[in-house]
Simulated scan of single mutants.
Amino acid sequence: MKMQFATVAISLAALTLGGCGKKVDTTSNNAAAAPMNSVNAIEPVPVAESAGQTFANAAAASDTFEIESSRLAQANSQSASVKKFAESMIKAHTASTAKLGQAAGAASPAIVPEPLLSSVQQQSLDALKRKKGADFDAAYIEAQTRGHQETLETLKAYSANGDVPSLKEFATKLVPIVTAHLNMAKGLKS
């Protein structure tokens, strides 16, 4: 009996001494437990976007710009050829958005494209909203030509050097389509 008591006493002593010198974790997952102030507040650090995310966002923004500006063309253009082109752009860029979503979703980890317009795209769209008739047609044709040229350059660059295989394949397949759109835009007359 004395032997069992000694063993238990030694075990308790070891456990007690084992806890000495250990740092106590005072952090809590409960936000209410520790009020935040300027001393202990942790600011989120911005995380750099991956090249794949950047490309997906640019492609999504391009599609959004093409669709929105083409919807304006259907309402504000006086040219039958511009309206026909705009209708084809809405269909093509809606399909492109769906394909981009599939390619981005196939990435590991999955990428979610954010279709936020660049400041240049937003300014162009805002300018188009203020125009009608022949003035609109000229501005729309210029915006479509510039936008498709920029998109083509982005697609070619990602097709050559992309880091996400599914997005790289998407870019490669889109190059001839966007080249055709660019040529069509250049051929439009206001």
Rank of each mutant, 00 (worst) to 15 (best):
M1S: 14
K2I: 00
M3W: 13
F5W: 10
F5M: 10
T7C: 01
I10S: 12
A13R: 00
A14S: 13
C20K: 05
C20I: 07
G21S: 11
K23N: 14
T27Y: 02
T27C: 04
A33M: 13
V39N: 12
N40F: 04
E49L: 05
E49P: 01
A51H: 06
G52H: 02
N57L: 00
A58R: 04
A59V: 01
F65L: 14
I67K: 11
L72G: 07
L72E: 06
A73F: 07
N76R: 12
F85V: 06
E87N: 12
M89R: 11
K91G: 09
A92I: 03
A92C: 03
H93W: 13
S96D: 15
G101K: 11
Q102G: 11
A103D: 00
G105Q: 09
A107M: 10
V112T: 00
V112H: 00
L116Y: 06
L125I: 05
D126E: 14
A127Y: 10
K129W: 11
G133S: 08
G133M: 03
D135S: 14
F136W: 00
D137W: 05
Q144I: 06
G147M: 06
Q149Y: 02
L152T: 03
L152K: 01
T154Y: 00
Y158C: 10
S166N: 08
K173C: 09
P176I: 02
